[in-house]
Design a binder for these strands. Structure first.
Lengths: 334, 334
DNA sequence: ATTGTTCACGTGAACGTTCACATCGCGGTA
DNA sequence: TACCGCGATGTGAACGTTCACGTGAACAAT
């Protein structure tokens, strides 16, 4: 920087002003400085700036990295993309840390925590909640994106409304016995279950008993759960899996056992991953608008970092029901 | 740091030694320093370290971000994951920049270039080659991952061998007329085409003429290309699409037009994306081992950064043929 | 007893920015 | 003429590390 200053015949401070686009520099001087910068291939050093300003202009993002669990992939990538465009708009960078599931959630964010190289943290809920209290106490601004969370500001899709829309859609088609394939925990699928039940209630229909089977969000678990549900004395006429992966599994079970979709049984998923549109028949699902989720989370984080008006503890973004060919009126209806 | 030093009754330099795990510190002193660090919640500042060492211990990674092109997603995510585990192992961080396709490839890496906040760059080939010469000249160590590239060290899968394996597999099953659906450019599919042709040559079979149709790696283009190929006077008995997305499109065309897969027509894809295992029937494809690709690229970048023995200009990693249910002997064979 | 060697630790400078403040012209006003 | 105000620019310190030394004590070898 001092070299540039010397070349342009000004002081280092003037160079700084030019670099930061501050006012109070004559056009002539600015041009001379810019020319010197170019000819010396000068690039300002982020380190020194961070040192004196106490800000790195980088935020960390922690995402799970599970090679086996391939379903959430495009959700994740969109989340990252959305957050990054928002960050880029403000000149921030994104330091990404992928975390092997089960590899100790703490380690992933400790990576940033250790040396102060981020101004804040974006955490995808899939990384596991165990490290979050620790994290919240560390003093970093943190936003959780994915599930609802009570200690830390979070932004997540409106699971309840999304599930409500699916069940409402199926009820409107004429289905009365809708089987559900839930997630492994109440945290992961509680809201979706509530939405499902509320749709029944609002339609003044009695919720059929014993038409719920737990899964773990994998294709195989959806396959197994569909088998159990369809073996009931009064099998359901529609299956609502709480994510697309399990819906694909259900689709497979039905095909292998001679049930036509949607002729015999309708199937709906959740998340609207890329695979939803690719399987046969294309899957009715709920889009979570991952890009918006990521973008919103980044905005929230900026509010936290800049200590603007205290941001809401919880931000809920609506999903959108995407009706495809896997749902239709039940056989013999109308 | 000086506060910690005072609290522990030592000099700042001793604290530095403890932080960096350097030798020459008594166990007693070390414990005292560590205790002081903990009680003061001290975390070393990466900025200052980067300032004096001239290294940020962060590398940038540039990936394309195309919401519509959902197929490469899990490839991309695995690439990122692989690179990140390698980086993490050496204490490095990954600064990610997602780039909207067509949004000016230059802008994505300029983000790092502008302020010197990375030690090197990992560039996914999908971001487009236009910015690379510029990039190579910028003085950063750069590794391109994905396609082969002549100006910059690169690591990419062995497309030719992968395609060779697919065609060899189909020929061994008894197919003679194998239709191919290629990518939009020679850059993207030249090697795969060569592998395909070499497999014919090695099997001493004549390559059937006019059984190649271009696509653009989207599902729809695969659908259209399959339609064109199957409308030939002598239609192929097997389709080899140069990525999974187009293979899925082909699958759809065949289903809609009453051809059984693999009964009437076999279908093979390329890349072994998550969707390959999900569609019906599951798709024979070629796994690129994206995680290894990412890891290898990171290793190469470290060689460049540390100026170790000059790394190879081109690193080729073999793919693996994954045979699933979409390929079988042609009707009436054996 | 002297010298040398090793080890633990301290000292001051340097890295490349920004911040707070000082200075220099210059035009206008009393 | 003397003074004020203001906009453009310069000055020195500070940020929190690491680096290249310097120092002193303990101990061994002569």
């Amino acid at each position: 920087m001092r070299t540039v200053a010397a070349a342009a015949g000004v002081s280092h401070q003037t160079v700084s002003r030019v670099v930061n686009g501050e006012p109070g520099v004559t056009d002539g001087t600015r041009d001379r400085v810019l020319a010197a910068m170019r000819s010396l291939a000068y690039r300002p050093g982020a380190g020194a700036r961070a040192l004196v300003r106490g800000r790195t202009e980088v935020v960390g993002m922690v995402v799970p990295h599970d090679p086996g669990f391939t379903f959430a992939n495009d959700h994740l990538l969109r989340l990252i993309g959305g957050a990054d465009t928002e960050l880029a708009a403000r000149g921030y960078g994104m330091l990404l840390s992928t975390r092997e599931t089960g590899g100790g959630a703490a380690s992933a964010y400790r990576r940033f925590d250790r040396r102060r190289l981020v101004d804040g943290l974006l955490v995808e809920a899939g990384v596991g909640a165990d490290a979050l209290p620790d994290l919240a106490a560390s003093g970093y601004p943190v936003v959780v994106v994915g599930y609802t969370h009570q200690d830390v500001p979070c932004v997540h899709p409106d699971d309840e409304a999304g599930a409500y829309a699916v069940t409402q859609h199926l009820l409107a088609l004429g289905h009365r016995r809708i089987g559900t394939v839930t997630g492994p925990s109440a945290l992961a699928s509680g809201a979706r279950l509530r939405g499902h039940e509320r749709a029944y209630a609002d339609a003044r229909r009695r919720l059929p008993a014993d038409l719920t089977e737990p899964g773990d969000f994998t294709v195989d678990s959806g396959y197994a759960a569909a088998g159990r549900l369809m073996s009931r004395r009064h099998p359901p006429t529609a299956l609502f899996a709480f994510n697309d992966g399990m819906a694909v599994g259900a689709l497979r079970w039905l095909r292998e056992h001679g049930r036509a979709v949607p002729g015999d049984v309708s199937v709906a998923g959740f998340d609207d991953t890329a695979a939803a549109g690719l399987v046969d028949p294309p899957l009715t699902s709920v889009s979570l608008h991952s890009t918006d989720l990521g973008r919103r989370a980044a905005q929230l984080l900026f509010d936290l970092i800049d200590e603007r008006a205290d941001p809401p503890r919880e931000t809920v973004l609506p999903g959108t029901l995407v009706v495809r060919a896997s749902t239709a009126p039940p056989r013999g209806h109308r």
